[in-house]
């Protein structure tokens, strides 16, 4: 077989790269267990059902952003009739911790946290740094 060494090496490299996730996870002992998120202690129900929030919270946030910034609407009537202020820091982060909740799950699925936190502040963190 001509170029035997090159071809075999190339194939092994290819196989190594394709199966890299398996090696990595087996070595690192990764399991399919998702991150344990710190849920709000003071609230039982989010502004929308869990299944919706899991998949589509970004849609809700975009909708809020549009309402507040562009349409000047600040109140959100939730599916259960409750009324919320449409505020990322003021509403969402009153229950959820950015670090323990948002970031954790985003890191897990490798979705780069959008640039929300470049501007919007986590009240908890502000409080901590102020001290």
């Amino acid at each position: 077989m001509r170029d035997k060494v090159w071809i075999i090496a190339g194939l092994l490299l290819f196989l190594g790269l394709v199966t890299y996730p398996a090696w990595h996870d087996l070595v690192a002992g990764t399991t399919a267990k998702p991150p344990q998120l710190v849920l709000p202690a003071n609230q039982k129900q989010c502004v929308a059902p869990l299944s919706y929030m899991r998949t589509s919270h970004m849609k809700l946030l975009l909708q809020w952003r549009r309402s507040v910034v562009r349409d000047g609407q600040t109140k959100y009537v939730a599916f259960d009739g409750k009324v919320y202020n449409m505020k990322l820091s003021g509403t969402c982060l009153r229950c959820h911790s950015q670090q323990e909740f948002c970031t954790r799950c985003h890191n897990y699925v490798g979705v780069r946290t959008p640039y929300c936190w470049n501007c919007h502040l986590d009240p908890a963190q502000v409080k901590r740094s102020a001290r």
Binding site: P21, A22, K33, P34, R54, T55, Y108, V111
Partner: peptide
């Protein structure tokens, strides 16, 4: 049409670690 990424990742890792799990619903 959003899917549950956490479930996707669980499925994917289950597959590559040869301990497959079938998440309830992904989409």
């Amino acid at each position: 049409f959003k899917v549950d990424l956490e479930a996707v990742k669980q499925l994917a890792i289950g597959l590559v670690t040869f301990s497959p799990i079938v998440p309830a619903s992904i989409g």
